[in-house]
Design a protein around this nucleic acid. Sequence first.
DNA 1: CATATTCATACTAGGCAAGTCGGAATTACG
DNA 2: CGTAATTCCGACTTGCCTAGTATGAATATG
Lengths: 180, 180
Amino acid sequence: MKLTKRGEYALRTLIRLGIAKRMEEGVISVSSLALQEKLPFKFLEAILFELRGAGYVESVRGKYGGTRLAKPMDSIKMGDVVRLIDGKLAPIGCASETEYEKCTCPDEIHCGLRMLMIDVRNAIANILDRYTLKDVVDVTLRKQERDSAANPKTRKKRAEARHADPADGFLAELLGSKIA
Amino acid sequence: MKLTKRGEYALRTLIRLGIAKRMEEGVISVSSLALQEKLPFKFLEAILFELRGAGYVESVRGKYGGTRLAKPMDSIKMGDVVRLIDGKLAPIGCASETEYEKCTCPDEIHCGLRMLMIDVRNAIANILDRYTLKDVVDVTLRKQERDSAANPKTRKKRAEARHADPADGFLAELLGSKIA
DNA sequence: CATATTCATACTAGGCAAGTCGGAATTACG
DNA sequence: CGTAATTCCGACTTGCCTAGTATGAATATG
């Protein structure tokens, strides 16, 4: 169930470029991006090349050149980026909506594994296809601001017992604010 | 976001063994399992070896030997089997609850990608760690029975337009019955 | 022209997925 | 006992994919 490094770097970079757009930073060179995000320069260059081919980013060549987002952030669905770089969201082919492939099992319609994986696929898609780069950038900036504003003493972490606490997730930050 | 063939085969085989237990079929040989599930014999043998090592199945050696489940089905969480064979559920290490690893990003706490992936991870775990082999076997058998009982003419599929329709999933079958 | 940058392709090292092979050990049956 | 069926178990193969690197051309600034 994993995202490749290529996919991870692509998404991190798009988020970074989204923040840049908010800040009106203009284009950013590959070397700056690589440095800031601590990514291998040449590898990132190749990834940006691919993102450019797909129309997500555009670049300015020559000295003082660089890369920026090429489309409105709310038109970039996270799921589509993952599909571009890493392929289908579904754990197995026979549970994929966009890249279905028949599996070897004797009766696909009554295959328990397929039924289960259809739900897993939809659980993933319900997040990645629902939210856009805009949502992620908004939430990222909001969390950054809130945490830098708060008194560092009062927001002491509870020992960071969990690593995947839903309270630390995207949805908590997104929906938490809608309630408030 | 994919499950390996090894993982797929392991789960399919466990489901098959779960059905066998329900039917009181006793042990099943690797060759039978391979034939029925259309899996490569030697590969399946290796997978069963691993499942046995982890205590999920037990085997009877010699002629007329074979494999059966070694534990109660409701004690076998689907997520744990996936973890055994394929590793963590989370798409990236920094969003894993069980196999966390630090990532290279400058500020993990405020990393938008990590926030998002925490939710993806939890969406997956909410299914795979909630439901057990028992649930999957129950649902599989129920769907099989219902579809073989129904009049084949009335349950004509609507052209199978989608491949990951939630209505064809595990949860629909499971929860659909609870309502009825 | 020097320098900074993207564009584009080709290449590589290593790992891992998906299997296969071969034989030893175990058990049932005649 | 001998043979057939079966699991056990490590070693091996094959090929693709991941995660990069290398090299140089093209482009723009000053």
